[in-house]
Amino acid sequence: MRVEKHPILGDDKRERDASIVVDGKKVSAVTGEPIAAALLAAGIRKFRVTPRFGNPRGLFCGIGRCTDCVMTVDGRPNVRTCVTPVKDGMIVETQVGFGKWADEP
């Protein structure tokens, strides 16, 4: 959910000028915002599952330190979504375990 109106910061006037694909579904986003922000705005909270037990993980620290929010982005695994800016057309995938490179067998 987006914070459209705010008593201190005013209205959010940014345009949803980007569109990313998350696990095959289109999600509208703002160019330059972190991927994690676009996902939370769309109600997506589970970003990856752990290698051994398959437990769900999502955003934790939000400043690029804890790596809990890593996903596979444009075929690259382990991308920290909380500090990686959205670009139009990005392909974002829920990461399973350590993930795989696009060209990995």
């Binding site: 909270r45 589970k46 970003f47 769900p56 993980r57 999502g58 955003l59 934790f60 620290c61 939000g62 400043i63 909380c82």
Partner: peptide, 9 residues
């Protein structure tokens, strides 16, 4: 679990 996060986050 997703939904548990730092207050700063």
């Amino acid at each position: 679990l997703p939904g548990v996060m730092g207050a700063g986050a």
